[in-house]
């Protein structure tokens, strides 16, 4: 359910009564409604679903799983010695 794709906000502006923006998805850009992430600024990554940004991505949280994997790797390496 609910295809949500991460993209980078590259433009923010008002279009009539709506807060809109342009979001780049790895070389493909689309107009996206930013009403639900009113504090988004260019450079932020957002999750986009049916043309609406629903959530800003937290880069620090995004790195967490990789730290965990590193930790696992260290533990395994330690166990093997």
């Amino acid at each position: 359910m609910c295809l949500g794709i991460p993209g980078r906000v590259i433009e923010v502006g008002r279009e009539r009564d709506l807060l809109m923006g342009k979001v780049d998805f790895g070389g493909v850009a689309r107009k996206v409604c930013l009403e639900h992430v009113p504090d988004a600024v260019p450079g932020d990554y957002v999750i986009v679903h049916v043309g609406f940004a629903l959530s800003k991505l937290d880069e620090q949280e995004a790195r967490r799983v990789f730290a965990l994997l590193e930790e696992m790797g260290r533990l395994e390496g330690g166990a093997g010695q």
Binding site: L3, I5, G7, F25, G26, G27, V28, R30, V48
Partner: peptide, 12 residues
């Protein structure tokens, strides 16, 4: 191409 991958992700 990355842009083909990206467009496919966006459109499902």
């Amino acid at each position: 191409r990355p842009s083909v991958v990206a467009a496919c992700e966006v459109l499902g």
